[in-house]
């Protein structure tokens, strides 16, 4: 009886948290099909916003900026973060402590301070636009890659790399055949984390972007007073559904195979 009750309470609590997490998302999805431009009143079903989305140059430009930024910053962070993590794990205690301290700064510091500090530095030598935002995103993304890859490096079997070197493999060949395959899991999750953080960032982009360059977040923020275009809800729903499908494939297909 008590076991049943706790079982029921567990499920009920899970349901409440799910409602809390997904209520705002449901609101956006419903609004993307609402034929009214008004925010709260339902006036009937339409796919109009999905059609008009693709001819809205402003939204499409911001989408492309956001995606290019996320891909480029996650890619650069992946390479630099992997090399950094390999280096860090070979350091002696003092170098290790200093480097990990530096790595923690962007993670611990408030976004607003990071964004403002970068902006104040950038204006000394470069215009604020795509490149400044890219540098900023790489800066806050590398720590996520390092933290994802470092534990995998610590778990990996380094002897097979050393054996391959003793048997005459070049450092590069040994790296690609002996080390990289052991780190795939950490690299994938590091890249995914970095991509997500870049897509979801608002504050740091806002301070480092300069006029004329917009990501989806900064464009939406600029439009709040004029009213959000319903096309934005449609785009967000599409992004959400795409990621949902991707995650479903990535997470649950391999898991099922393992169980069998």
């Amino acid at each position: 009886m008590a076991r049943k009750l706790t079982g029921f309470l567990s499920r009920f609590y899970l349901l409440l948290i799910m409602i809390f997490l997904y209520a705002p998302i449901l609101v956006m999805v419903v609004l993307s099909f609402n034929s009214s431009r008004s925010r709260v009143v339902w006036e009937g079903f339409t796919l109009n916003w999905y059609v008009r989305l693709f001819s809205n140059h402003q939204i499409m430009d911001a989408l492309i900026n956001t995606l290019v930024l996320a891909l480029a910053s996650a890619g650069i962070s992946l390479v630099m973060g992997l090399l950094a993590a390999l280096g860090i794990s070979a350091m002696r205690r003092r170098g290790y402590t200093i480097t990990m301290g530096l790595t923690n700064i962007p993670l611990l510091n408030a976004d607003i301070v990071t964004g403002i500090a970068l902006m104040l530095w950038f204006i000394h030598f470069m215009p604020l636009s795509f490149h400044s935002v890219l540098i900023a995103h790489v800066t806050f993304n590398i720590p996520y890659v390092i933290l994802a890859v470092l534990p995998k490096i610590q778990q990996m079997n380094i002897s097979i790399y050393e054996a391959s070197r003793d048997l005459g493999a070049s450092a590069v060949y040994g790296f690609f055949t002996m080390i990289l395959p052991q780190l795939t899991g950490g690299l994938v999750s590091g890249f995914f984390m970095a991509f997500t953080m870049s897509m979801d960032d608002f504050v740091i982009t806002y301070f480092t972007k300069g006029p004329g360059f917009n990501t989806l977040s900064t464009m939406i923020y600029g439009e709040i007073r004029k009213g959000i275009k319903p096309e934005m809800y449609a785009l967000s729903t599409l992004i959400f559904v795409t990621v949902f499908a991707l995650l479903l494939v990535v997470n649950f297909l391999p898991g099922r195979q393992e169980e069998e």
């Binding site: 997904y22 705002p24 997500t196 979801d200 608002f202 977040s217 967000s236 992004i239 959400f240």
Partner: peptide
């Protein structure tokens, strides 16, 4: 993590 893919400002 999934809700993070609905834009921060829109959420």
């Amino acid at each position: 993590i999934l809700p993070m893919w609905m834009n921060f400002i829109l959420r």
